[in-house]
Structures are given as C-alpha cells and as structure tokens.
Simulated scan of single mutants.
Amino acid sequence: MQRKVLAMLILWASMAAGVSNAQDAPGPRRPLSSPITVSVFSESISLPTFKGFFEKPNVGVRIGTELYYRNRPGSQLFQTVNLGYYHHRALHHGLFVSSEFGYRKFIGPLYLDATIGGGYLHLIPTVPMYRSAGGEFTRVSPHLHKFMPTLGLGAGYRINQRTSVFSRYEVFGEMPVVQDVPVLPHKALHVGARLSLSR
C-alpha cells in the first residue's frame, strides 16, 4: 500500500513540474511559474486546537501546485491542487485529492495566507469493519469514500523568487461519518517548501 502511494505522489510531482502558468506576470518580486509545494504534516482527529501534534504524531505528506488568478508584488489570489497521504495509527490510511482557493499577503519576505476548499478523501481502515443488519454482522468494504472540506491558515518566508518555506495549520473534515454525526473533524500542522521550476 505505501509503495503504491509513494509511486502516485512521485507521478503527481512529475505532472506538476510540467504545469505552466501563463497568468504569472513579470515583476521584480513575483514568484516564477509552475510552483511545486511539498509538505510533511502531523494529523490527528480533534476539534481545532494546538494540542497533541507532537505526542505520537500521525505523519502525512502532501504535494501540490498553485494556479494564480491575481499575482501582484504584494499579494496573490490563487487556487491549489493537492495530492496527499497520511497514516492514522491503528485507525486508517488516508489518501486525498483536494483544491483550495486562497489569498496571500506579502510583508517584505514574510507572508500570511488563508485558504478554503474541499476534496475527496479515500480511507482504508487498518482493522476490519462490520455492519449490523437484522441481528447479524456483515463485513463492509475496506474502502471508504468521503467528502473533505478544508480550512487553513499559513505563514511563510520567501527566500528568493524561486523558493519559500512555510508552516500551515489546517482543519479538514471527514463527511459523512455515521447517521448522527455529520462530520468528523481532523487537524493538521504542515511544514514545507514551495519551489518554482520554470521561468
């Protein structure tokens, strides 16, 4: 399973490297086109807090790119396209595809951004799952298909026109869960880098 996920992530990185953004207008401090964003993150099931990220963390990785609707020296309006994987110990493997709309504000080499979006979350439980029907238990499919709403806040530092590093706090949902619980909240803390590969 992990080898297949790694192969998919490498394929996605290769595809993202070939994306060209024609809307990236020239400017003295504007980043170059075709950025690849790579981050590692700690995931947990929780309401939004900053606790528990480093206590036996569940680790994941995300690779993506950005498309710019507005790209000015002091701000950006952008859309992300992401592919990621995480392993929540003793519960499930999660593979997701997501897209977010965001706004980024630059303050010298520093920047802040906020995003909102959604995606598809594919869960593979690590233990068998059963459903009760008529007093009997039947085994259900090991593949669960979920909608994944996302909300994130980030801060970063632009090293040069090609490279920046960042940290990002994200809340995402798992929908549906069960009949009486419409959404199960997750949180993730990312650390990563953004690299532009073409001029």
Rank of each mutant, 00 (worst) to 15 (best):
R70K: 13
R70Y: 09
R70M: 13
N71F: 04
N71G: 07
N71T: 05
R72N: 10
R72M: 09
G74K: 15
G74R: 15
G74T: 14
G74S: 14
G74P: 10
G74E: 15
S75Q: 12
S75D: 11
Q76M: 07
Q76K: 09
Q79V: 10
T80A: 09
T80P: 05
V81Y: 12
V81N: 11
V81D: 09
N82A: 08
L83R: 03
L83F: 10
L83D: 00
G84V: 00
G84Q: 02
G84A: 01
G84L: 00
Y85W: 11
Y85L: 03
Y85T: 03
Y86Q: 08
H87D: 10
H87A: 11
H87L: 12
H87V: 08
H88I: 15
H88G: 11
R89A: 14
R89L: 10
A90G: 08
L91I: 08
L91W: 10
L91R: 13
H92Y: 09
H93P: 02
H93R: 12
H93G: 06
G94F: 04
L95R: 04
L95Y: 06
F96M: 01
F96C: 00
V97K: 03
S98H: 02
S98E: 01
S98G: 06
S98T: 07
S98D: 05
S99E: 05
E100Y: 07
E100M: 14
E100P: 05
E100G: 11
G102Q: 03
Y103S: 05
Y103A: 10
Y103G: 07
Y103M: 07
Y103C: 07
K105P: 02
K105M: 06
K105V: 06
I107K: 13
I107R: 12
I107W: 12
Y111C: 06
D113Y: 14
D113R: 14
I116T: 12
I116K: 06
I116V: 15
I116L: 14
I116C: 13
G118R: 00
G118D: 01
G118Y: 00
G119D: 01
G119R: 03
Y120A: 08
Y120F: 12
Y120V: 04
L121Y: 09
L121F: 11
L121E: 04
L121H: 06
